[in-house]
Write a protein that binds this DNA or RNA. Structure first.
Ligand SMILES: [Mn+2]
Ligand SMILES: [Mn+2]
Ligand SMILES: [Zn+2]
Ligand SMILES: [Zn+2]
Lengths: 140, 140
DNA sequence: ACATACTTTAGAATAATTATAAAGTAGTTA
DNA sequence: TAACTACTTTATAATTATTCTAAAGTATGT
């Protein structure tokens, strides 16, 4: 008694090609994360609550953590931090920048910010990437 | 039986002028944090371990947390996050940028980075500050 | 010295995350 | 399809970072 629609196929392939067995839980989580137009920024708790809210058969906390870590390792998610002690994940894996607006995170495309001056990497090192955070506050 | 040297005076004043009673613990912690030439980036655990290592009379964990929070509220420390679930603190309270090199954090003075292009803040918002993280990796 | 508010402390509590190990499932092979 | 095996899910325990609690201690004003 499995639901199957044409969307799932995409995620099954995505998981398989990353060496992850496309279990029901992983497919559901992938669909929830990646089947949307805009970038999704989330914590594991938020993901768990919003997915499990409507489900009769809940997915376990450990599976949410396991799956998010697996997707991160496979390069489908990026991890980042705000100024609290929780990990956030980003469905936009391209190098890009962020607005932080009281806990709300908004993507800034890489080409929206360019530099006039950037320091050289210390000797023996090179630059892996450059990410900018623009913190916002309310006007007036 | 209090040790007192001319350095402590500075920190006593600093604490008093921030509305914090200059207790022994706070003075010791302030001296440890601020009596150095270079910026210090640390977690509360790191601070606790390095200060308590040599002391016979240990300062309690709660006091390290309390004092770091108090110093942050007073504007003498800034909090930031790496990609783990621990708060880091920065003795450099000026707006500035960072190199991240495998967990090691190095300051970049604000004027070492300038922008050619920056996005506008969404309407109703304004930019509070802009901080850049340059992630490093080893050469070759 | 006394009073009082603030501070320190040990220990309990909480939140996010990771570890454990038993039960379940996917992919493979007979 | 049945059996096999490696991988996955799950409930639960453990860990880590941090905050809370409330009792004992201390700084400051009088
Ligand atoms: Mn955590
Ligand atoms: Mn934490
Ligand atoms: Zn993003
Ligand atoms: Zn710094």
């Amino acid at each position: 008694m499995h639901k199957m629609n044409s969307k799932n196929k995409t995620f099954i392939d995505k998981l398989r090609s990353s060496g992850l067995r496309p279990t029901n839980q992983r497919v559901e989580i992938s669909k929830f994360l990646f089947n949307r137009k805009k970038t999704f920024h989330f914590t594991v708790e938020e993901l768990k609550n919003s997915m499990n809210f409507k489900r009769s058969k809940k997915i376990s906390t450990a599976t949410f953590y396991n799956t998010v870590h697996a997707l991160k390792s496979a390069g489908h998610l990026k991890e980042f931090s705000l100024e609290n002690n929780t990990s956030y994940y980003d469905t936009n894996i391209k190098s890009h920048h962020h607005f932080f607006d009281n806990g709300k995170v908004i993507d800034i495309k890489s080409d929206k910010i360019t530099f006039q001056k950037l320091p050289d990497a210390p000797k023996g090192k090179k630059i892996k990437n450059v990410e900018v955070v623009i913190r916002l506050e309310n006007n007036n």
